Amino acid sequence: DTINITLPDGKTLTLTVTPEFTVKELAEEIARRLGLSPEDIKDTHNGKTLDPSLTLAEYGITPGSTITLEIK
């Protein structure tokens, strides 16, 4: 299953994830792909900052969802 990550420059990154991924694991994968530190990444969905300890499923993030990435 894939989700879309909207980057600060407007580009989109597509990642393969499972509903059990935590937001922290997602940030780590994004950081790895972009050459950043996971601590520099802030993920938001529907205007809410995502708690790193919760899973994508707990936020109702499903395949095809879009998450907005902010760099701290």
Rank of each mutant, 00 (worst) to 15 (best):
D1M: 14
D1Q: 11
D1E: 09
D1S: 14
T2S: 11
I3A: 01
I3P: 00
I3D: 00
I3G: 00
I3K: 00
N4T: 11
N4H: 11
I5H: 01
I5M: 03
T6E: 13
T6G: 07
T6L: 15
T6M: 14
L7W: 06
L7P: 01
L7N: 01
L7G: 03
L7Y: 05
P8H: 08
P8L: 10
D9Y: 06
D9E: 05
D9L: 04
G10A: 02
G10I: 01
T12W: 09
T12D: 03
T12S: 09
T12G: 05
T12P: 03
T12V: 12
T12Y: 10
T12K: 09
L13S: 02
L13F: 14
L13E: 04
L13Q: 03
T14Q: 10
T14L: 09
T14E: 08
T14R: 09
L15I: 14
L15Q: 02
T16I: 10
T16E: 10
T16H: 13
T16V: 12
T16N: 12
T16D: 08
T16W: 12
T16L: 11
V17M: 07
V17G: 01
V17L: 07
T18I: 04
P19H: 06
P19C: 04
P19V: 05
P19L: 08
E20M: 11
E20G: 08
E20Q: 12
E20Y: 09
F21P: 00
F21K: 07
T22M: 02
T22P: 01
V23L: 12
V23G: 03
V23Q: 00
V23N: 01
K24Y: 09
K24I: 05
K24E: 04
L26E: 00
L26K: 00
L26G: 00
A27P: 00
E28Y: 07
E28C: 07
E28Q: 08
E28N: 08
E29Y: 10
E29T: 07
I30G: 00
I30D: 00
A31L: 06
A31D: 02
R32M: 09
R32I: 09
R33W: 14
R33L: 11
L34H: 02
L34S: 05
L34A: 05
G35C: 08
G35L: 04
G35D: 08
G35N: 10
G35T: 03
L36C: 11
L36H: 06
L36M: 12
S37G: 08
S37T: 11
S37M: 12
P38K: 07
P38W: 14
E39H: 13
D40H: 11
D40P: 12
I41T: 02
I41S: 02
I41R: 02
I41C: 05
K42N: 08
K42M: 14
K42H: 10
D43Q: 15
T44S: 13
H45R: 05
H45D: 11
H45V: 14
H45M: 14
N46P: 07
N46R: 02
G47W: 07
G47E: 05
G47T: 02
K48M: 15
K48V: 15
K48H: 15
K48W: 10
T49L: 14
T49P: 14
T49Q: 11
L50A: 04
P52R: 05
P52E: 11
P52G: 15
P52T: 13
P52N: 09
P52Q: 13
S53D: 09
L54T: 07
L54S: 10
L54F: 07
L54I: 07
T55Q: 03
T55E: 02
T55Y: 03
L56D: 00
A57E: 09
A57W: 10
E58Q: 07
E58D: 11
G60S: 03
G60K: 02
G60P: 01
I61G: 01
I61P: 01
T62L: 13
T62Q: 11
T62E: 09
T62D: 05
T62I: 13
P63Q: 07
G64S: 03
G64I: 02
S65L: 06
S65P: 01
S65H: 07
S65A: 11
T66C: 06
T66H: 09
T66Y: 06
I67R: 00
I67A: 02
I67L: 12
I67H: 04
I67Q: 01
I67W: 06
I67F: 04
T68N: 10
T68P: 05
T68D: 09
L69G: 01
L69K: 00
I71R: 03
K72D: 13
